[in-house]
Design a binder for these strands. Structure first.
Length: 152
DNA sequence: GCCAACGTTGGC
DNA sequence: GCCAACGTTGGC
């Protein structure tokens, strides 16, 4: 069992949107490191911290899980899609994704500010590599964030 | 809306 | 292979 943090802009796709659809293909990742994590490291059932970026209060808002094996991101082949990639082909796709399934909202948002001020979380990849949209999380970090939310 | 950080592209 | 130019992310 692995743990991850995945960012989404709530104006584009929020935790409420995920709850409505239940399962969502995580389209649009165009960063090789994030892709490699989804392609090579994620397993069905892995737990995901759902993070709102570019939000009024950036932070972790819910829990999701990895719901599929990796497969080619279909938006890379669609020339009308904003994520179209002319260098990708059906024979040789560049971008892989996984499906993500809604589990639950956290009782309270755990903000980036709170995460940064918790010394137990100072090694989080989220903190150290702020622009990476898919990042690994330690089990202890995952549990600490749940605890912070429940304690509010 | 600004802008720092940083990843990507492409000329050489 | 270097690196300047450019584009994107995401906090503030």
């Amino acid at each position: 069992m692995n743990y991850w943090l995945m960012k989404s802009e709530p104006d584009v796709f929020s935790i409420d949107d995920l709850k409505k659809v239940n399962v969502e293909p995580w389209t649009g990742v165009r960063n090789y490191e994030a892709r490699n994590l989804m392609r090579d490291k994620m397993e069905v059932g892995d737990q995901v911290l759902f993070y709102h970026s570019n939000a009024k209060v950036p932070g972790v808002v819910g829990i999701a899980e990895v719901a599929s094996k990796p497969y080619a991101d279909p938006t890379q082949f669609d020339e009308h899609d904003k994520y179209f990639d002319p260098k990708a082909s059906l024979d040789n796709p560049r971008w892989q994704l996984v499906d993500v399934r809604y589990i639950r909202h956290l009782p309270d948002v755990v903000s980036l500010k709170e995460i940064k001020s918790n010394s137990a979380l100072s090694d989080m990849v989220l903190v150290k590599r702020s622009r990476l949209s898919v990042s690994p999380v330690q089990k202890e970090e995952f549990e600490e964030i749940l605890r912070m939310s429940e304690e509010k």
